[in-house]
Amino acid sequence: MIEFHLNGRSGLSPYQQLVQQVRHALRLGLLKEGDRLPTVKDVASQLAINPNTVLKAYRELEHKGLVAARPGVGTFVTRTLADKSLSAHGPLRKELERWLTKARLAGLDEESIEALFLSTFRGAGEEVA
């Protein structure tokens, strides 16, 4: 079981944050296939948020095929995001570290590195889309 939290400064709406947190937990292996998500009522009560928001997040996860709702029982994880990508993490991390060293040698400070990374990341995202 995981516990949700909301960050007022994240810029994401509450429902997006819930979706993101489930995906994150799936990716990190905190949630595995067959695990039950907290009930809508529990999440609504614990976070003092609208139950419809929780429902909407769960529906989106369901739509993406990550969870399945079993009426009267609860919402269960049907797929995990961890297996495929975890193995690729290591090599990618190594490459990124090499790139970071290069960037520092070129005289970029932390802030410039972050800005460069984010703008490239966003630009690449738009191309793919």
Binding site: A44, S45, A48, I49, N50, P51
Partner: peptide, 14 residues
Amino acid sequence: RREFMQLLMEAVAE
């Protein structure tokens, strides 16, 4: 305030 809203949201869910 938080406790009040928690009670309210729980009731809305129920």
